[in-house]
């Protein structure tokens, strides 16, 4: 485990060099949040009215929280990196190193997004305050649980993206699959809470990865309850396991193929 922590730490350090890129990334993030704020302001002609259980302020905070997770993840780059590793044969070199490629990919990615996560969270809070003029009334404990579940969410999402990136063993370009997955997360999990979808869809969404990766953590920030927190953490635990097993199997199968072809 120590070596993975070391990988994590060195990625955090090297990400500091790209501070300027992160600062520019703020622009796109700011624009997205601004558009959503305008959209909901328009739709909630009376800010105190409640829509599907959300006031305007709750709605805006929900979107800010999911957007933090979405923007921080940088899934597109991760998918590209994994599929480059596979295609360039870099992954073959990893075979003779004493670590698991999946662990390595996960920890190095988490390391590279840590600074971004902190900065985006701060910016998100500031923007929310600027838009709405107040912070939601939340306790210290709920913030702590929200942070823990957000980290869990990023780990699960990263593993899912690694899983998709590893498809490159089979097909030349895994990116189209990433688009579809990311759009699924973006549209069904990021821009609306589950309550906005038709009744039939809701139970499916509640058991999908969306609950563990976006809806769950963001909802802790907006509608906190211990029962909720407990359910989110359980779901995350299960999905972490599922995502890891999926990665492991695709990797094992891919490596076998690699051996047959001689790299």
């Amino acid at each position: 485990m120590r070596k993975y922590l070391f990988i994590y730490k060195s990625e955090v350090m090297s990400s500091l060099q790209y501070l300027a890129n992160i600062l520019f990334g703020f622009l796109g993030y700011f624009i997205m949040l601004f558009i959503f704020f305008q959209l909901w302001k328009y739709l909630y002609s009376d800010p105190d009215s409640v829509m599907n259980g959300y006031t305007m302020a709750e709605m805006v905070w929900y979107v800010i929280m999911t957007e933090i997770l979405w923007s921080t993840l940088g899934g597109k780059n991760l998918c590209q990196k994994i599929s480059n590793d596979v295609k360039s044969g870099n992954i073959a070199y990893n075979l003779c190193k004493p670590y698991s490629y999946i662990h390595y990919a996960l920890f190095s990615h988490l390391g590279s997004i840590t600074i971004k996560a902190v900065l985006y969270t701060l910016l998100g809070l500031v923007l929310g305050f600027c838009f709405l003029g107040e912070f939601p009334n939340i306790s210290f404990l709920s913030i702590l649980l929200w942070i823990i579940s957000s980290i869990g969410s990023l780990a699960i999402s990263s593993l899912f993206v690694i899983f998709i990136g590893l498809f490159s063993f089979k097909i030349e370009d895994a990116n189209p699959f990433y688009w579809v997955y990311s759009k699924f997360i973006l549209i069904l999990g990021t821009i609306f809470p589950i309550e906005f979808f038709p009744k039939i869809l809701r139970p499916i969404l509640r058991y999908s990865p969306i609950f563990a990766t976006t809806y769950g953590p963001a909802n802790l920030f907006v509608h906190f309850s211990f029962q909720n927190a407990f359910r989110v953490l359980i779901a995350q635990f299960i999905y972490l396991g599922i995502a890891y097993v999926l990665c492991y199997f695709v990797y094992q199968k891919g490596v076998k193929k690699l051996n047959v072809n001689g790299g």
């Binding site: 990116n175 189209p176 688009w179 579809v180 549209i187």
Partner: peptide
């Protein structure tokens, strides 16, 4: 696949 998936990608926003 690139063409097809881009169409699907765009279509998802209709939701």
């Amino acid at each position: 696949t690139n063409i097809l998936f881009m169409i699907l990608n765009n279509a998802s926003f209709i939701i």
